[in-house]
Design a protein around this nucleic acid. Structure first.
Length: 889
RNA sequence: GGGCGGUUAGCUCAGUGGUAGAGCACUUGCUCGACACGCAAGGGGUCGCAGGUUCAAUCCCCGCACCGCCCACCA
């Protein structure tokens, strides 16, 4: 088969993915004896579409999976999607809204039908996008957090934790989202700083004419629910008032002045209004002083109607409207003392974008504090390690200060809580209604808890629920759990360490008795080229699918890989993607060259006994590159892996090896044995490149290996990763070629400096400065002869007068081209070289003259310096001599 | 307020206790049978600022400045 003239990613990508998937190469093989390698895919939201963060996350996982699979591991990359409670409900509600409907019009059952219908129609989007990226999870095992098995796991976990007292029901303040009319967890609240106002309001003291106490607040509307004013017990301004009452303006309720250390004399007036039902701190104060908790809002954050003391005019009023009205009224009452402009942070719901209201309700909680203990210990003991390590601090910090986790949501889409209430309100938690009925007695009339669980509750079980837990009676499931739990690595962004990683740790340890994964690789956030977070509102979103369309999936993957340095955000510039597209093209064309020159992989070729130095060298360089890639991947240094393969393919293989050998292949009458060896070695090296590059650029390498290699399309198979014998790494050949490369570079440099006309042939004589160098020259000269054509060099045995001399390492090159060069330019060149050498010499002499340095520096550093000095001095002498000769002429 | 990270070439970023690197951009010259998505040769840096440790600091320690992020609080 012949390769097309240009490389077009679009033509090959779909074709390859489909074929590979069908071949079953992505599938885990639980029955095999191969050691497992497990990666749990963070399940993307079923509503989602692929964004740059996914692209990075999935690329890294895919590299790890492919790499380990090729290394003979039984790789399981477990895919799936998350039902994403609020997000999904939101999408479907919006859809209903466009039809003029509300979910309550449909009722719970019909609404859920609609969501499932939506999921069936649109839920596959992200899966298809992952395929475009080239991700190779085991699609046969794809799971959904709401499917039957996972729901069963959720129920079992809930019931068991409840039995153990780790899940309980409690009435306390929660973060209430008035838009979705549900509680949300602390983590779903975003603080946003903005301009605000502080209002100072005076409350008249009961029974004392003209005596007031002034409080300051950013939320005057909550005064409808005030049940006290607190002052610091030692604040002399107020000690005499403690125990007295104030009359709350507008409502006229009488509330006490209490002493509480929460009140800070330094802040505001030193007196603070206490609204236990609408402020987290006030709630604590309220509990300490047994204050009543008066709720003034309904679930949509409108003023309630049934609170005895609130004037009718406020009933049903939106919280911000109520604020305006309160302020107006206070002003009329002459109670508003001061309005201050301030900056303050307000809590917003991360999904709804509306201001969160602290709200007093009954909710279900997980005793996270207790469950965090073993999870902290596991990381302390190194059972799970974070990479980079500094994220462990973040994890510890949060886990040690963890708050009860509110897990109930007043939504419909999600796992409905397995709790039933009888007519007295007694709760029965059970795996099903029959069980609950048994507990409650057959007469009891049970109704099920309406609420569903936080989405993250089911995600927390992902590492074992996806494997089939709790059905351990099933043999296949037992085998899978034994083999694939705990997983090897979790790859994720730091933004969900708390949401997800921490909770998987807690649940995994509790239910499986072991951590869910050994490594947690935390990758950077992808930002735009200016370092800003990508967001739709800023309009700086880069769409991975567009980039794939434009540059190919391989180029995008490689870019993300090359930029995934640990501990740093990725500022992604489109030019980088373009650059790596060029890399793919380069490889494509190198393959074309090889094909045209009949350098194709040959069966039975062994790189062990090569004769021709460049061949020995390229094999050696390849072995070194492989080692560098392996080390980098195993240390999760993906940028280093990408650079190693890039450098090898372009900088070593194409730029030097192919160029060195090219003249020989195209020369008539060249030594047949040598050219045959070159052809075979080139073909072999090319095939190795496809293999080594495959985890990073799967599409192009699969296409090329299919086109070029005999054993087509084997790259994905277990055991495809090469194993080389150690002796293939040949230092001798490497140093010879390094020298030769230096010589060639020098010749090119002189040629450019001297403005040697393009067609002019220059002659070259290599003279060794030392015996060692001279001894090796037979080999060098041979090689130089071989490559003479491309550099347009003629070899000479004698240096004519007026030749240009130049130094490379220990050898002198004599370039007898004086008749065709620019003498002034040569003088300048020599002067420049000499001056630079003198700088170096001075610097080294200075160091060597320092007695402390000589006394303390390690031996090898000293030796190095001395060698450098001798080299520089020799070179300076030679250049000076050449300059003198030139001046004389 | 607590914590974390960053500051290296025009840009985006690697890196190291002992000659400072890459890609892109830039300059110059090349369409010679893989590739102009290319080849070759170049220019360009007090490694944020100030101290300290060391024979030696871009790297380790301390402080400062600026930038970014996370957490908490905000009467």
């Amino acid at each position: 088969m012949t390769l097309d003239k240009t490389f077009d990613p679009k033509q090959i990508e779909d074709k390859h993915y489909g074929a590979m998937e069908k071949s079953g190469a992505f599938a885990a093989k639980p029955q095999s004896n191969n050691a497992p390698y497990t990666v749990m895919m963070p399940p993307p939201n079923v509503t989602g579409s692929l964004h740059m963060g996914h692209a990075l996350n999935m690329t890294i996982q895919d590299i790890l999976t492919r790499y380990n699979r090729m290394n003979g591991k039984d790789a399981l990359w477990q895919p799936g999607t998350d039902h994403a409670g609020i997000a999904t409900q939101m999408v479907v509600e919006r859809q209903l809204d466009s039809e003029g409907l509300h979910r309550r019009d449909l009722g719970r059952e019909k609404f859920l039908e609609r969501v499932w219908q939506w999921k069936a129609e649109s839920g596959g989007t992200i899966v298809n996008q992952l395929k475009k990226l080239g991700a190779t999870p085991d699609w046969e095992r794809e799971r959904f957090t709401m499917d039957e098995g996972l729901s069963k796991a959720v129920t079992k976990v809930f019931v068991q934790l409840h039995k153990e007292g780790l899940i309980y029901r409690d009435k306390r303040l929660v973060n209430w989202d008035p838009h979705f009319q549900t509680s949300i967890s602390d983590l779903e609240v975003e603080q946003k700083e903005q301009k605000g106002k502080m209002w100072h309001i005076r409350y008249p003291v009961e029974g004392a004419e003209a005596e007031y106490i002034t409080v300051a607040t950013t939320r005057p509307e909550t005064m409808l629910g005030d049940t006290a004013v607190a002052v610091h017990p030692e604040d002399e301004r107020y000690t005499h008032m403690i125990g007295k009452n104030v009359v709350l303006p507008i409502t006229g309720r009488i509330i006490p002045i209490v002493a509480d250390e929460y009140s800070d004399p330094e802040k505001g007036s030193g007196a603070v209004k206490i609204t236990p039902a609408h402020d987290f701190n006030d709630f604590e104060v309220g509990k300490r002083h047994n204050l009543p908790m008066i709720n003034v809002f309904d679930t949509q954050a409108r003023i309630v109607k049934d609170n005895g003391s609130i004037p009718d005019a406020y009933h049903g009023l939106d919280r911000f409207k109520a604020r305006e009205m309160i302020l107006r009224e206070l002003e009329e009452l002459d109670a508003l003392m001061e309005v201050e402009d301030i900056k303050n942070a307000l809590p917003y719901g991360d999904r709804s974008g509306v201001i969160i209201e602290p709200f007093l309700t009954d909710q279900w909680y997980v005793d996270a504090k207790t469950m965090a203990g073993p999870a902290i210990e596991a990381v302390e003991q190194g059972k799970t390690r974070f990479i980079p390590k500094n994220w462990e601090n973040t994890y510890f910090e949060w886990m040690r200060n963890i708050q009860p986790w509110c897990i109930s949501r007043q939504l419909w889409w999600g796992h409905q809580i397995p709790a039933w209430y009888d007519e007295d309100g007694t709760v029965y938690v059970a795996e099903n209604v029959e069980e609950a009925q048994k507990q409650a007695g057959s007469d009891a009339k049970l109704t099920r808890d309406e609420d569903v669980l936080d989405t993250w509750f089911s995600s927390a079980l992902w590492p074992f629920s996806t494997l089939g837990w709790p059905d351990t009676d099933n043999v296949d499931i037992k085998v899978a759990l034994d083999k694939y739990y705990p997983g090897d690595v979790l790859v994720t962004g730091f933004d969900i360490i708390f949401f997800w990683v921490a909770r998987m740790m807690m649940m995994g340890i509790h239910f499986m008795g072991d951590v869910p994964f050994k490594d947690v690789y935390i990758h950077a956030l992808v930002r735009d080229s200016k370092g800003q977070k990508m967001s739709k509102s800023k309009g700086n979103v880069m769409d991975p699918l567009e980039l794939i369309d434009k540059y190919g999936a391989d180029a995008l993957r490689f870019t993300l890989t090359a930029m995934a340095a640990q501990g740093r955000d990725i500022k992604l510039a489109e030019e980088r993607v373009d650059g790596y597209k060029k890399f793919a093209t380069k490889l494509w064309n190198a393959s074309r060259y090889c094909e045209m020159n009949n350098c194709i992989p040959q069966a039975g070729f062994s790189p062990d006994n090569l004769q021709y130095t460049p061949n020995i060298w390229i094999v050696s360089a390849l072995v070194d590159a492989k080692g560098a890639i392996e080390k980098a991947v195993e240390e999760y240094k993906f940028n280093e892996a990408a650079n190693a393969i890039y450098q090898f393919v372009w900088g070593t293989f194409c730029d030097w090896y192919l160029e060195f050998t090219k003249p020989l292949l195209q020369e008539e009458g060249a030594d047949a044995a040598t050219t045959a060896e070159i052809r075979a070695t080139t073909g072999w090296a090319l095939e190795q490149i496809y293999v080594l590059l495959n985890p990073f650029m799967p599409f192009i390498t699969e296409e090329l290996s299919e086109a070029m290699c005999a054993d087509k399309g084997q790259l994905l198979m277990q055991g495809a990763w090469p194993q080389y014998s150690e002796k293939l790494s040949n230092k001798d050949a490497a140093s010879k070629m390094d020298w030769l490369i230096a010589v060639v570079s020098e010749i090119r440099s002189v040629r450019a400096d001297m403005n040697v006309p393009a067609g002019a042939k220059i002659q070259l004589l290599v003279k060794g400065a030392s015996d060692v160098t001279r001894e090796s020259f037979a080999d060098y000269e041979e090689i130089i002869k071989r490559m003479a054509r491309i550099e347009n060099i003629a070899h000479t045995d004698m240096a004519p007068k007026g030749a240009i001399q130049t130094i490379v390492d220990e050898a002198t090159l004599i370039l007898p081209i004086a008749d065709i060069i620019d003498l002034d330019a040569e003088r300048e060149r020599l002067k420049k070289r000499i001056s630079k050498l003198e700088d170096d010499i001075n610097k080294i002499n200075q160091q060597l003259g320092n007695q402390a340095f000589v006394a303390n520096a390690p031996e090898e550093i000293l030796e190095e310096k001395k060698t450098l000095l001798i080299e520089a001095e020799t070179a300076r002498e030679k250049f000076s001599a050449a300059l003198e000769q030139l001046e004389a002429a």
